[in-house]
Amino acid sequence: MTTGTGSAISVRGVSKQYGSGVRGVHALQPTDLEIANGEIFGLLGQNGAGKTTLVKILLDIVRPTTGETSILGKSSRHTQARSSVGYLPEDHRFPEYRTAAGMMDFYAALSGSPKHERRVRSGELLEQVGLADAGKKKIRGFSKGMKQRLGLAQALVHDPQVIFLDEPTDGVDPKGRAEIREVLTGLKRQGKTIFLNSHLLSEVEQVCDRVGILHRGTLVRCGATSELTRSEGMFSLTTQPEPDEATVAAVRELVVEVNVTGTELEVQIAREDDIDGVVDLLRSRGIGLRALSKKRLTLEQVFLQVIDEKVEGKS
């Protein structure tokens, strides 16, 4: 069965209810989502929002109550849909009796990679994630960060086209996180599609093309990262010299809100054109303009805003 021919990942009307009747839990409300080839998509949400459930449905680890999903045009229920998929689960547990290289070889073999390719790729990936010296060591001696990096390597060992990463930087130190970011950027350059679940919003912001926000099983916001973080009517201005109190008072007359910190002004205007009036006013008072830019929100701000809206909406 084939669905969603144009996109790498397709989710259509997928919902999941655990249990039934009064005690049933709706982990995921009917959700639609399309992720294009070569895109890095970040899924955000609080704990228990349904992020992992959605990923597991995509990988056929959890069966949906309604709807269907597909990967690279093949229904997720199809075993072969997973031949081009790499996955790093949250709370993964690797076979500790294996060495790092042995584990990589095991998972690559399960994915059907030829022996010679597995060997070469294992070595390359272990080096890429900074575990080149640990290849022959048993996993039981690894720290959490090492296991996380190894997890990323195993997800890539069979050169998958679509990669699902659930909290890939969990337990990894800042240097390691930067390395993982680099790996993700590299994968993007290779045209891989990445589905990223993460709590670390700054990272998601840095690497993801598009972001979805899941709240209590509902996909409440979804769009390009730049779109979501854009803040309508917020401008940042740098002046020379510092505006006096009378000027600030005059600016306040023209805008909705103004915050001044030395030579930095942050203004919230009602209409885009109003910024021209602010610039004219400053110039007429002999205050030069050194910089003017549209202000952006951080992804964290957007996320909190969305969650707050939803919580308030409910209450």
């Binding site: 680890i61 075993t79 849909a81 689960p89 709370d91 993964h92 998972y107 399960l110 195993q154």
Partner: peptide
């Protein structure tokens, strides 16, 4: 079947 182990196996193209 341990949590975290099975996911890694089921995500492979094995029925």
């Amino acid at each position: 079947l341990q949590k975290g182990t099975l996911d890694l196996v089921l995500a492979r193209p094995v029925g």
